[in-house]
Each structure stands twice: as structure tokens, then as C-alpha cells.
Nucleic acid binder design. Structure first.
Length: 650
RNA sequence: GGGCCCGUAGCUCAGCUAGGAUAGAGCGCCGGCCUUCUAAGCCGGAGGUCCCGGGUUCAAAUCCCGGCGGGCCCGCCA
């Protein structure tokens, strides 16, 4: 294992680890430990304690050697390293102070040689990866929940791209399910109107969808109410009345936006004896590929046009749009069902064809391999409705196979909300059951929690949602307001670039496993720990570099590197490739974000106290310029991975 | 009823996987710094029963058990 030019921090840890194992030679007989000394190396809680620290008490316990015997040997071995300046023992820890003349030279050499590729982990084999994300149902505009999905998916795409993988982005257009049938039905009832010129198609059709489902639900509840009135169950009666009131309120709100459509729809849907069966007719007709129902595809397509416009504004891209209907019509879904019928896991469940997974889920090893949570009960997967129409997860089996096959993917990542944990586990088990164990194992559910807005409960079916468009528009206005308060001009394009970067930063800074509370008033911090803060810090670094003109070609006076804040800055810069490698494995964007914020903070301190371009001492200036260049590269690469806009001026 | 996730400063969040050094940021609040590389910046201050109760340990925000509170799932919806 040689040194890694591109990863100075890993290199540093490796040499410290080697020094430790040399010190323990013949002293510690714990073989497992000596293989894994590197992972014991910590970063002390405060910089004053040193750059790295080694928990000697722990080693003493693990090796069963007294501290008195252990400490001198550790110290001596560590002191022998060129990169170590001094070593201190405090409270059972051996604290290591790095020699920045040596280490700084390595870091800057690494950065100056790698240039914009600094941070790409070395020694990784390029993989072919599919990321499926957003895949919002084409029945309404993207709301903030899909916004989180879009930002996370885009991040995964960019991260994999950055480390050198071949990545394909896919959007699964769910045009076959009930939801799009509801929209198609309502749209048909309205006489297939054209989109009003002042509205985005997704916004308009989202209202039609919400009006249709709400009207139908009101009709159903009214029937239930008249049935319940005959009985003496008062609490049931009140419950229905309450629900009904809230639905009527929803419809009134929708009618504020599209009054004519709502009144026409109410009338025409009421004329259908049983609108729900009419919706099923649309669904079945469309699934058959009956020409008379192709307006359902048209209407989805219109919604998608609106969604694409939103994605463009967000600067989130997509490579392939997969229509679910194509899988049904093309026979891929039939193939899956046939395959399932032959499988030994197939049985009837309440009269419907289904797969039973008990034999698989009883095997703890398989459970682990397929990442099926230990105590998650898996109900049978029903393959078709009794009327023969297909179900979402069945279609998704066919889709998963397609994603693997078409891109020869080693890995398929589905960015899907946590609420689908069960169906995603069923999907993996179904793949296993049907004889696709490799696909089952390499299908990854990248799950994320919901987005909450204080004081609102969101529902696409009721038309209650905050859209990504609204969020972006609001933020753009805020940016413009701030600029006008400063008497500065800003173009709409620049404002959008700042606004969307702020949103992405905020979303990525929260662990996907946590519910994201989105407070519109606070969504756009322009201060520290924000997207604009990173952008601004980069602009500062960049403008210094422009002033200087050219990068130093050697002549760096490294003897000046052993002081704050240069030391800490060099230390942070060294960690970037390591952080990227870790986040690639963990999938936790918040770690990368926290790192970037920390780096930006230290750079701003440096910028504040040290003249860079104006530094009179030539060698010292060269050192400072090289550090500034390093910060600019890392911040730029961070923004690249986070999907933020890299601005040259702010 | 069962399962999963979350609970840390007024607010939004790190830290928990592998237990250890005075529990960290940002926002908000209070107070400083612009004839010098972009002040969307920098410096300082106040602010915490780490949800509660047990247990393990020399040592628990972190591990275990039991509660409480919030979210999600358990559909011939997606």
C-alpha cells in the first residue's frame, strides 16, 4: 500500500497507524487490534489538544499492557515521524501535533497537482449506477416533499459522477395508477380543455385532480351519511359530518382558483351514478391501450411539461423518462406475472394472485443481505387485482429489471420516501423470489423522511400543498429585496441561482432520516451555515486569486505554515477527499455540508486577519495564495456535488 | 395491536454506528469591527434537567430495559 497523493489526510492517518503498530510490536498480542489501529485514531474535541489523538487507555486495555509501559513506546515511535512536530500526553490520550511545514507541503502539493480533481477518492473502481428519483405522480405540481427528493437524488447523481462513476438519472412516470385515472376522468368530464395561458399546466391540472377526487369523496361520504342516519351510532354520524365539512372546505378553496371548472365538474360528476367505477373504466381502458383512453397519457404529459419547467428552475436534470404504461403495453409486466405464477412462492391470497415471502424472510442471512429490517413483517404481495389490472409494486418489479438491464447497472438507487419502506422491501424479496438475486441485493432504497410546514397538513388529493415553484419564487423575491436594501442591482437569473442554492443547502444539511421542518421565513438564511455563505466565500477566494493572476509555481515558504489560522485551514483542506469517500458510503449529505461550512468559516477567518494578495513577503504570499487556491477548489467541488451554482461575483 | 424513525439551547440542526477530555454550530437576542484583497464577512456575550425513569460501566447525550411525546407503515392506493 503506497502513499496516496490525492488523499493527504488518509495518508497521515496511515503513517500514524503504522507508527503505532511498530510501537506495539511484540508488546501487544491482540492481532485484530494491530490490523485496525488506524480506526482508533481520533480527532481531539478541541484543536488546542492537537491535530490527532490516540486513546492510550483504550489500547492499554485492549492489549492488556500497563500505561506506564505503553506510553513511552507510543511517544517515541510517533516522534520518529517526519510529519509529527510534537506529542503530548493528557488524561490518557496521546495528542499529536502535526508539523505543518511537512504536512502543509503534502496537502498543497496534492491540491496543486490534482487541480479541480482534488477530492476524487483514489483507488475506486468505476461503477455503473442508476439513480431513480422524483418520480412524482404526474397529477399535480412538485411540492416541497418532491423537492426534497429532487435535491437528494440530484446530490447522489452528482456525488457518484464526481467520484468517477457512470450514472444515469431516471424518472418513473406513473401514468397507469388510480391517481392518473382520477385526473384523466376529471379532465375528460371537463371536455379536455386547453390550459389557461396564465397558468402552468401542472398547477392547473393539479387543481382539476384535487377537485375531481374531492368531489367524488364528498359524494361517497354523503352516501355514507344517509346510511348512517338510519342507525343510532351518533359518534359515527358526527365523524362523517366532520370529514364532510372539511372536504367541502377544501373544495371551496379549490373553487377560489378555478370556479368555473369546479362548478362544471360538480355537476357532471354528479350525473354519473357511480363515478368511482367510471374511474376504474378509465384505468382499465388505459391499461389495455385502448385508443379511446389515450387522453389519459396526454394529460399526464401536460403535467410533466410543468414539472420539467420546475426542474429546470431548480437546475435538476434527468436523463430518461420511463412511462409506466410502456411497461404494461410492452409485455414486461405480463412477463413478471407469468414468472411469478411459475414460482414456488406463488399462491392465491383472498382470491387474488400473490407472492408469499415467508420462506425467504425466515432466513436471517437473506434478510440481512436484502436489508429487510429484522422485525418487519412482510405481508404477501398481490400481483393483480381481481379484475386483472396490475398493481404498483408488480409494475415496479418489471421496471427495476429494466433499469438494471438497459444501463447494465451494478447498482440501482431508488430515492423514495420512508413511507414506502415496506413495498420497497417487498420489491427486493420479489426479485429474489423470481430468480434475480443480484438485482435484489443491489437495489438500494435511499429513504428520506417527510417535509413538514408549520401549521399545514399537505395532501395532493385535497390540493393542499406548497409547491417548489412557490418556494423558489418566494426566495427569489427575498433575495431581490435584500439586494435592493443594499442599493445593489441583481439580475433575476442571479437571484434564482442564489435562491435555489440556498434551498439545496438547507435540504442537504438535514439528515434524510429526520423530518424536515421547512419554515418559509427562515428557509433563506444568507448568513453563516447557508448556501449563499458558501457561494460568497468562494467568490472572495476567487477574487483574491484574480488579483494575484497566476498560481505559484513553487517557492512556497512552508516554514510559515506552522501558525493559525493557516494550520487549521491546511488541516481541513486535507480532509476533503476523506469526507467525500465517507459520504459516498454513508449517503449522508449533512456530513459534507457541515464540512464545507466549517472550511468556509476558517477561510473567512484567514481572509479577515491575513493579507493575501497584498502580502509583501514573496514566499509567504505564495503559500497563502496556494492555500486560497485550495479553499476555492474544495468549495467549488462541494458546490458541484451539492448542485449549487458556482458564482464568480455576488 | 405490531413494526420502523425521531426527541439535544427560544427556533433549525450536528454529535449517538465503534461509551471517555469543559455537549457543538447557525438563526434569533445583546455588544464591538468597514480610508487596506467583496461587511452575504469577522470578533465577543448571554442562552442547555442532552424527553423521563431504571440498568451496565471507573466513565453514558452515546449501550441495554421500561415509559412518555411526535411522525410514518401494516390496502385488490401509490
Amino acid at each position: 500500500m503506497g502513499t496516496q497523493l490525492g488523499n493527504p489526510f488518509a495518508d497521515l492517518k496511515r503513517s500514524v497507524g503504522a507508527a503505532l503498530s511498530k510501537a506495539l510490536e511484540g508488546l501487544c498480542l491482540n492481532a485484530e487490534l494491530s490490523d485496525d489501529l488506524e480506526s482508533l485514531i481520533e480527532e481531539p474535541p478541541r484543536r488546542e489538544f492537537g491535530d490527532l489523538s490516540v486513546p492510550a487507555t483504550r489500547i492499554s486495555k485492549l492489549c492488556d499492557v500497563s500505561l506506564d509501559e505503553l506510553l513511552p513506546r507510543l511517544m517515541e515511535s510517533l516522534k520518529g515521524l517526519e510529519v509529527v512536530e510534537r506529542v503530548e500526553v493528557v488524561g490518557g490520550y496521546v495528542n499529536i501535533f502535526v508539523n505543518y511545514s511537512v504536512f502543509g507541503a503534502r496537502v498543497l502539493n496534492s491540491i496543486l497537482t490534482s487541480g479541480l480533481r482534488y477530492g476524487v477518492p483514489e483507488g475506486l473502481k468505476s461503477e455503473r449506477v442508476v439513480v431513480e428519483y422524483i418520480s412524482a405522480n404526474p397529477v399535480h405540481p412538485l411540492h416541497v416533499g418532491s423537492g426534497r427528493n429532487a435535491v437528494l437524488g440530484d446530490f447522489l447523481y452528482r456525488l457518484h459522477k464526481f467520484v468517477g462513476n457512470e450514472v444515469q438519472r431516471r424518472y418513473y412516470v406513473n401514468d397507469v395508477g388510480l391517481q392518473s385515472a382520477y385526473l384523466a376522468y376529471g379532465y375528460f368530464k371537463l371536455g379536455l380543455p386547453s390550459i389557461p395561458p396564465h397558468m402552468k399546466p401542472d398547477h392547473y391540472l393539479g387543481l382539476i385532480y384535487a377537485a375531481t377526487t374531492t368531489i367524488i369523496d364528498i359524494m361517497r361520504l354523503k352516501k355514507a351519511l344517509s346510511r348512517a342516519e338510519g342507525s343510532s351510532d351518533l359518534s359515527r354520524l358526527n365523524e362523517i359530518r366532520g370529514e364532510l365539512d372539511s372536504l367541502i372546505g377544501d373544495l371551496a378553496r379549490i373553487a377560489d382558483a378555478i370556479p368555473n371548472e369546479v362548478s362544471v365538474l360538480s355537476e357532471r360528476i354528479a350525473s354519473d351514478e357511480d363515478p368511482e367505477s367510471k374511474v376504474m373504466e378509465v384505468l382499465r381502458g388505459y391499461e389495455r391501450g385502448d385508443k379511446n383512453f389515450m387522453f389519459a397519457r396526454e394529460v399526464c404529459n401536460k403535467v410533466l411539461e410543468g414539472i420539467q419547467e420546475t426542474l429546470n428552475k431548480l437546475n435538476v436534470g434527468m436523463d430518461v423518462w420511463d412511462w409506466e404504461s410502456d411497461l404494461v403495453w410492452g409485455g414486461e409486466v405480463d412477463y413478471v406475472v407469468e414468472k411469478a405464477l411459475e414460482s414456488k412462492y406463488y399462491r392465491l391470497h383472498k382470491g387474488a394472485p400473490a407472492l408469499f415471502f415467508d420462506d425467504l424472510t425466515n432466513d436471517p442471512l437473506l434478510r440481512e443481505r436484502l436489508k429487510v429490517p429484522k422485525s418487519l413483517e412482510i405481508p404477501p404481495l398481490i400481483l393483480r387485482r381481481s379484475d386483472g389490472s396490475t398493481l404498483y409494486t408488480t409494475r415496479d418489479i418489471a421496471y427495476t429489471l429494466k433499469k438494471f438491464k438497459e444501463f447494465s447497472a451494478a447498482k440501482v438507487i431508488n430515492v423514495i420516501a420512508v413511507e414506502q419502506t415496506l413495498s420497497q422491501a417487498q420489491l427486493r424479496l420479489a426479485l429474489q423470489a423470481l430468480g434475480f438475486p443480484k438485482e435484489a441485493e443491489n437495489l438500494i432504497h435511499y429513504s428520506y423522511e417527510m417535509v413538514n410546514l408549520p401549521g399545514t397538513s399537505m395532501s395532493g388529493r385535497r390540493g393542499r400543498y406548497v409547491t417548489v415553484d412557490e418556494l423558489l419564487n418566494k426566495l427569489v423575491e427575498m433575495v431581490k429585496t435584500i439586494m435592493s436594501e443594499r442599493d445593489a442591482e441583481i439580475s433575476g437569473d442571479q437571484a434564482l441561482k442564489i435562491a435555489r442554492s440556498a434551498v439545496k443547502y438547507m435540504i442537504l444539511s438535514v439528515s434524510p432520516s429526520k423530518t424536515l421542518v421547512l419554515d418559509l421565513k427562515k428557509a433563506l438564511d444568507l448568513k453563516q451555515n447557508s448556501g449563499p455563505y458558501i457561494q460568497y466565500t468562494y467568490v472572495r477566494a476567487k477574487s483574491v486569486l484574480e488579483k494575484v493572476g497566476v498560481l505559484p509555481q513553487g517557492g512556497l515558504d512552508l516554514s510559515k505554515a506552522n501558525k493559525e489560522p493557516l494550520k487549521t485551514l491546511l488541516f481541513e483542506l486535507s480532509k476533503f477527499p476523506e469526507v467525500v469517500a465517507e459520504v459516498l458510503v454513508s449517503g449522508q449529505p449533512e456530513d459534507l455540508v457541515a464540512y464545507a461550512n466549517n472550511l468556509a468559516t476558517i477561510f473567512n477567518k484567514f481572509y479577515d486577519v491575513e493579507p493575501i494578495a497584498k502580502e509583501p513577503d514573496e514566499g509567504y504570499r505564495a503559500l497563502k495564495v496556494a492555500i486560497t487556491y485550495g479553499a476555492s477548489v474544495v468549495l467549488r467541488n462541494f458546490m458541484e456535488i451539492a448542485g449549487m451554482d458556482v458564482l464568480d461575483r455576488m
